[in-house]
Design a protein around this nucleic acid. Sequence first.
DNA 1: TTTATTTCGGACAACTTTATCCTATTTGTA
DNA 2: TACAAATAGGATAAAGTTGTCCGAAATAAA
Lengths: 144, 144
Amino acid sequence: MFSKACEYGIKATIFIAINSSENRRVSPKEISEEIDSPQAFTAKILQALVRNNIVKSVRGAYGGFEIEKDKIATTKLSQIVYAIDGDGIYKGCGLGLHTCDENHPCPVHDKFKVIRDELKHMLENTSLEQLALDIKSGVAFLKV
Amino acid sequence: MFSKACEYGIKATIFIAINSSENRRVSPKEISEEIDSPQAFTAKILQALVRNNIVKSVRGAYGGFEIEKDKIATTKLSQIVYAIDGDGIYKGCGLGLHTCDENHPCPVHDKFKVIRDELKHMLENTSLEQLALDIKSGVAFLKV
DNA sequence: TTTATTTCGGACAACTTTATCCTATTTGTA
DNA sequence: TACAAATAGGATAAAGTTGTCCGAAATAAA
């Protein structure tokens, strides 16, 4: 469904959010340990998240990654996915046709549309805050 | 969502079904032209479909690919997908956790489960016949 | 039995994604 | 200012997916 990069990106952002809510910056090393991902690759993905204004980075001593507190509630899962995987999940034909719409559908167009719209709706209505709260309360997990 | 191989596989199977319903065998060349896919690669995918008993191949002169007529109605989209992409679409965690279930969920487990179950249901309840009929009647298309 | 036709299957090439490494740049503190 | 601690970013490697090529094997017809 998502690329590996996107999976790491989502988990990393959640971990950063949890720490930012307690005023702690975190390093790629910490992040990759907590979400069980390759460190250097995770660092690359963090760069993309910074460029897309999802998270903030602070260079130099005592630096690290953080998220502004008010952004934790407003950032949606869809924004993270879009920053890393683009809009391929919603757009594009399920069977790879160049043009696939109501007027010129692929054989599974209608059936796919239902599911994709639901996926889109879910991503656009799931906030970083919700996800972070489940980790904080021990209801959900970022690794294993 | 699906791999390229799977997209080609689905379209190829539909095209074979249409022709088998009219007692015609088709070659990889014909297939790849009709579904707009690379010929040699498509041939490889057809081999996989044959091994998985989705389609039948007949070697030698006047040979080609076909599907037994009664199979057209009973074959489900899920079987084609499974033959090529495996069960990764249903199984496996959306965020790549090793174990992700009710007891040890990833942050998006519940939300994903809903969508994946729906996708699974759709694939398991869509028959090759339905898809082929839409192409035959000109309501849907296999290329462009 | 020979020949033409057609799928099968292994080897390999190209491209994309995933992952690593090393140096440059930035920044806080002594 | 010098140093240490961090992220940024380019180069490159490893692995997976996509795609090509060619000879082997099978089969129908002459």
